[in-house]
Nucleic acid binder design. Structure first.
Lengths: 123, 123
DNA sequence: CCGACAGTAAACCATATGGTTTAATATTTG
DNA sequence: CAAATATTAAACCATATGGTTTACTGTCGG
């Protein structure tokens, strides 16, 4: 159950709010990469890139294993899933179903109202 | 086609990275609200809440119509959809399909490789 | 017209963020 | 061992962020 007031969501969305970090994630979707490899495409010092990776890691989006002097980073999708699921509850607000808004996201007000479509757990 | 290097995505994710703003969005999912109504649940000055709404508005998540002295805010889902679609490309990284990672998000490297499942437009 | 009300603007403050440069720490290699 | 490599740490800087308080603007009700 994803709380709306969740430091985890804070960290994930904050981490995603930077184009450099999104590009790094995208790169990591192709496979593991070292810090230097991640830094290479950007006009940025290695230290700067290292800080970006640390933000991604702190948000739980990237995990790192140290192999000798290089750090291999890989994407961890679970936190992305939480963000995705949080957003999914708003789907009626962009989908073709203008009436589907009706009563959506009300699972918490009327907590007992089971059987609702879309009554997922997150918030 | 959602670019990875997109100021819009920056603004949306940044706007979502705050629990107060997420709670406001949630509230707006139940219907339109004035600034004062949005501010009320929080231990925060009206001016503070007003600034949060402005951030949401700047990100395109909220639209406002002035009615006399009150401002009625309503949720606009289209920008949320962009964030959602951006995240969706990473679905293989949290879904049960550990092998579905293979070749995913490669639509751009091999631009001509059509027929790929999951070869959506965003980036 | 006058006061209450809804909201913004502006100035201010503390802290966070994104970036740099210059060390410092490990590790690999000659 | 010494030099090169990969990365972090630390100090620093400019700007952004989240919040306040104190005006100020505009509208509604008498």
């Amino acid at each position: 159950m994803i709380e709306n007031d969740s430091p985890r969501l804070d960290a994930v969305f904050r981490a995603l709010a930077d184009p450099t970090r999104r590009a790094m994630l995208r790169r990591l979707a192709h496979g593991e990469h070292s810090i230097g490899e991640l830094a290479q495409p950007f006009a940025m010092s290695l230290a700067g890139a290292s800080k970006h990776v640390k933000v991604l890691e702190a948000a739980g989006l990237v995990r790192r294993t140290v192999q000798g002097r290089t750090h291999r980073c890989r994407l961890d999708g679970s936190r992305l899933a939480e963000a995705y699921h949080w957003l999914r509850d708003y789907e009626p607000f962009w989908a073709d179903h203008p009436d589907a808004r009706e009563g959506l996201l009300r699972a918490d007000d009327a907590a007992g109202a089971a059987g609702h479509r879309h009554n997922r757990d997150r918030d």
